[in-house]
């Protein structure tokens, strides 16, 4: 594995620690609005990274924001991976008409929407909220896992050891879960780590459009939205940190998961490793 993958791992570990221990790390309550404050206060001894448009501590909000990002990212990744793997396995394993309907039609319908647009549309009609956001991201997310899983199952079910298991009288379920799944898991892990990056990014994007988690919650995307609502020139002139601190947090976490996904892909694919 290359150096960038390790950097990715380090960032992810730091991110998890930040999220888990947020109440102990954060110097202030992320929702606390002081009675007297300067709008977009500069970094100071009390507010290390300055304050936002209504005087809340940006550092504390970014620290708590890690919780939201990870919560959404992990839930979306796990749920859509399970759904996608199941559907992909069914399509690949049973083949025939089921596969034609699933991979020929259903997959294509979900791939026919640009992912973010479908999520935006769904949340626009359902209304904002954490649960609805997660639902929307799962609906656009599962199809990636399903495609990878189907390809893997198609390949692996022709291997000799699967034929041998079948000859020994193993049931379909047993073949699928004890023989095919463990051998198909590697590309799915890569997909999951790239999917995690995608989920964190989508959460931030939807929150930035005002379609994610409602206002006082310290989501990174919402923080950028709130900073920008005061007017581009005002924010960038007065307090660029109100935009760039949450922006850096988003960029670093997405970058980290992409580093890991890329590194794993190269590591697991010997053809690429030689290059």
């Amino acid at each position: 594995m290359n150096r960038l993958t390790y950097i990715g791992f380090v960032i992810v570990v730091l991110l998890v620690i930040t999220a888990v221990f947020a109440p102990w790390i954060a110097p202030q309550d992320p929702l606390y609005i002081p009675d007297v404050f300067t709008k977009f206060g500069p970094p100071s001894a009390t507010n290390w990274l300055g304050t936002d448009s209504i005087g809340r501590d940006i550092l504390s909000r970014v620290i708590y924001g890690a919780r939201i990002s990870l919560e959404v990212g992990i839930t979306v990744t796990v749920v859509s991976a399970i759904i996608g793997m199941l559907i992909g396995a069914i399509a690949g394993f049973y083949g025939g008409l089921i596969d034609k309907i699933l991979s020929g039609y259903i997959f294509n319908v979900f791939l026919a929407f640009p992912g973010l647009l479908l999520a935006i549309a769904m949340v626009a009609f359902l209304g904002p909220g954490l649960g609805k956001l997660i639902l929307a991201l799962c609906i656009i997310g599962w199809v990636g896992y399903a495609r990878v899983m189907r390809g893997q199952v198609l390949k692996i079910r022709e291997y000799d050891f699967v034929q041998a298991a079948r000859a020994l009288g193993a049931s379909n379920m047993r073949i699928l879960f004890t023989h095919i799944l463990p051998n198909a898991i590697q590309p799915l892990i890569v997909q999951a780590s790239l999917g995690m990056a995608g989920a964190v990014l989508s959460e931030a994007s939807l929150s930035f459009l005002g379609l994610g988690i409602p206002a006082p919650a310290p989501s990174w995307g919402t923080m950028i939205l709130e900073a920008q609502q005061t007017g581009f020139e005002t924010v960038l002139g007065l307090a660029p940190h109100a935009l760039f601190v949450p922006g850096t947090a988003i960029a670093l976490s997405v970058l980290a998961f992409n580093f890991i996904g890329d590194g794993l892909r190269e590591y697991l694919d010997p053809k690429q490793r030689k290059r």
Binding site: A204, S205, G221, F244
Partner: peptide
């Protein structure tokens, strides 16, 4: 990895 709403303001 960088979303538009980070690159844009930058």
């Amino acid at each position: 990895s960088l979303p538009g709403f980070v690159i844009g303001p930058a």
